[in-house]
Amino acid sequence: MKKFILLLFLFATGCTSTPSKVHQERARYSQESILLNSYLGNEHPAYTHNGSNDELAQFKLLERFYIQLVEPINGVYTRDNLALIFFFSLYAVHKNNAAFNEYLSSDLKIIAYSEPELFAATLSELDFSISAVCSRLGDESENSDGAEPRREVLENIIVKIFKKTLSEQEFNACNTAFYTK
C-alpha cells in the first residue's frame, strides 16, 4: 500500500507544473519514473535510460537527478525535494548502492541540520522511509571536506526536533536506525 501511495505521489509531483516549467517538469517526471522503476526492478525499455539496459548509463542518469534534488531551490528545500531524496535513501538501502549511500550519508546530515523541522515533518509523512533515512543520518563516516555537522549536533536535533514531530513509534524506529551500524 505504501509503495502505491509513493507511486501516486511521484506521479502527482511529476504532473503538476506551470506552463513556463513544462519542459523541466516533463524531464523530471521521466527521471522520477526511471527512479521508481529502477527501485521496482522494472527493466522494460520504456522505463530505462534511452530504452537501453546499460547499468552505467542508468546510474549516471539517476546520479544527475539526485544532484539536482539535493540543491535547494533558491536556498530552500521543499517537501517534494525531501520526499524524493528520502525515496533515493530507500533505493540506496534496498539496492545496496554504495555510491548513493555515501552521497546520502553526507547530504541528509546537512539537510537535517539546515531544515530540521521540515525534515522531521516530511519524515513523519513518509514513515516507511524512516529506517533508511535515519540509518544514513547515523552513518559515522565523514565527508572529506568536513561540511557536514558532527554526530553530537545531529543527536541533539533528533532528540529535540524529531521527538516533537514524530510519533513515539516513529521516533523509536529512527533512533534505533540512527545507532545501528
Rank of each mutant, 00 (worst) to 15 (best):
F4L: 04
A12T: 12
A12P: 13
C15K: 15
S17G: 12
S17W: 08
S20I: 11
S20G: 10
K21T: 07
K21E: 03
H23N: 06
H23T: 05
H23Y: 04
Q24F: 04
E25N: 15
R26L: 09
R26G: 03
A27W: 00
Q31M: 11
E32G: 02
L35C: 06
L40C: 04
N42G: 00
P45I: 03
A46F: 06
T48S: 13
G51Y: 10
G51T: 07
S52A: 12
N53G: 14
N53K: 07
N53A: 07
D54P: 08
E55P: 15
Q58D: 02
Q58E: 04
F59W: 12
Y66S: 08
L69G: 04
V70G: 06
E71C: 04
P72W: 11
I73W: 14
N74Y: 14
N74F: 13
Y77Q: 13
Y77T: 08
Y77E: 10
T78V: 05
R79T: 13
D80E: 12
I85N: 15
I85W: 14
F86H: 06
F86Y: 15
F88K: 04
S89D: 02
L90P: 06
Y91L: 02
Y91M: 01
V93F: 12
V93N: 08
K95A: 03
K95T: 11
N101F: 07
S105D: 10
L108H: 01
K109W: 01
E115W: 13
P116Y: 07
L118M: 09
F119Q: 02
E125M: 08
E125Y: 12
L126N: 08
S129G: 12
S131T: 10
A132V: 08
S135A: 13
S135I: 12
G138Y: 11
G138L: 04
D139H: 14
S141K: 14
S141C: 07
N143F: 11
S144M: 14
D145R: 11
E148N: 10
P149G: 02
R150A: 09
R151S: 01
E152A: 12
L154H: 00
I157P: 01
I157E: 00
I158A: 03
K160G: 03
F162P: 02
K163L: 00
T165H: 13
Q169W: 05
Q169A: 03
Q169G: 03
N172R: 13
C174F: 02
N175E: 09
T176M: 05
A177T: 06
F178P: 14
